[in-house]
Amino acid sequence: MITSKLDLWHHALELSSALIALRRELHEHPELSHEESETASRVTRELQRLDIPYRAGLGGHGIIAELKGAKPGPIIALRADMDALPIQEETEIDFPSKRPGIMHACGHDAHTAMLVGAAALLSACKEQLHGTVRLLFQPAEEVNAGAAAMIRDGALDGVSEIYGLHNLPTLPAGMAATRYGALMGSVDRIEISLEGKGGHGAIPDQSVDPIVCASAIIQSLQSIISREVSPFEPVVVTIGSIHAGEANNVIPHYCRMTGTVRTFHPDVQAKLPDRIERIVQRIAEGYRCEATLYYIRQTPVLMNHDEQVKAVEAVIDDMLGSHSRATAQPTLAGEDFSIYLKDVPGCFFWLGSGPIENAEQAYGLHHPKYWLNEDCLTYGASLLADIARSRLAQLAGGGQ
């Protein structure tokens, strides 16, 4: 039985080898977004072993488990994502992905193992828990669909606060980083279709070239960043794909582009659809093309809540020492944990997963050679468990 922070940490150390084994098993068998059935099945076996009730098949392949303490109190949610990426692994580890073209290049295998570890730690101290810990094993984070789907299936019903983390290979294992307010950017998708008039590449005057129009639109979209948004408000508009034509001597009839739009302020995000629509339509008109813009909102800015950040910092300082806590730098990378934070107060933070000596030389997230220092598994499981334990006590008036 766990009765103190020291007991919790010692128990976490005892779980270390099991968490590493689980993470490696998941790493060898990655699954893409919306396909996480085997991963979910593996998690449910762990929950059954721990005798924690759960519901599976939520939000796709998501799982909601509930660990009820012996004492009355609120509900605190902890979340981990489970999906992998369409990346061919290039690491030299002994347990690489066994599925060609699919890799856990973002460490969601580690996040899943950490939450299983937190569940084991909390099970060992449930007699002292003032309320309920809801464990959210979420699918489809990489395509910004899982959080919303989980919410529709009741993930936040009755929840007072929610917490989550993401590993960061450029931060050494044994450290964590927090930030008040905006931590990660919004994520929106744009799809632009251009219709011109196809023809022979040697006779362009008899055609309407959608490729030339597309190139003008791509260049002009950057004027939003340089001339329509304050330099103190970060914005990124990136066209990531462009498809037109099949032959080198043919002007195609159609051109299609997709891109991503990132901001760091909700007000800026709200104004961008109209600005992008104006540029696309006016440029297309000037090049005699017909244009259609689909602006797809995906995730809002990830905004942490002050009280919950302060609570996380207290746990980090108490467990790892204040010298092991850094201030997180803002990033325009997105995270659909932001959708949970729109409805419920909480905190999302970075957990160091890099080498102890020189984390700056680590391969970053989504890289085919991404590598994770497995020492972070124990830290992540312990921090998540103690955040939930301590916040339940505080909210229920039970102190620490």
Rank of each mutant, 00 (worst) to 15 (best):
N373G: 03
Q128S: 11
V116C: 03
A140R: 09
I339K: 13
A388L: 01
A140F: 09
L221C: 01
Q308W: 08
I2H: 13
P72L: 01
D81I: 07
V212I: 14
T39W: 01
R288C: 09
M303T: 14
F337G: 13
I64V: 12
A177H: 09
D318G: 13
A118S: 14
Y180N: 10
H253P: 07
V280T: 11
H366A: 05
L8Y: 11
I251G: 13
L377M: 10
C125M: 15
P53N: 02
G399F: 03
I387L: 07
H200M: 13
P86D: 08
I2K: 15
I64H: 10
I76V: 08
Q308S: 13
A12G: 04
N249I: 07
A182Y: 08
A80W: 04
F95E: 00
L341H: 06
S220P: 02
L183Y: 05
T238W: 00
H305F: 01
L15Q: 12
Q308R: 14
E127T: 15
K342F: 00
Y363R: 10
A396D: 02
G185R: 03
K369Y: 00
G198K: 08
S223M: 11
R99L: 01
E92H: 05
S4A: 11
S324G: 02
P53F: 02
M319E: 04
E285P: 02
D343V: 00
M114S: 01
G131W: 13
V116R: 06
D375M: 10
E46V: 10
H367T: 08
G334T: 01
T132K: 01
A118V: 08
C106F: 05
H367L: 12
A40W: 00
E141I: 07
H11S: 11
Y363N: 13
D375L: 15
S241H: 12
E31L: 05
G60L: 14
A80L: 06
G185T: 02
D205I: 10
E127G: 15
L85A: 01
L365F: 15
H253G: 11
E25S: 02
K68F: 02
L384K: 05
E66H: 04
A385T: 01
S241M: 09
H200G: 14
E307R: 07
I63Q: 09
A182H: 08
G354L: 04
K197W: 08
A124R: 04
T44G: 14
H61C: 14
L302N: 05
A40G: 04
R275C: 10
L58E: 10
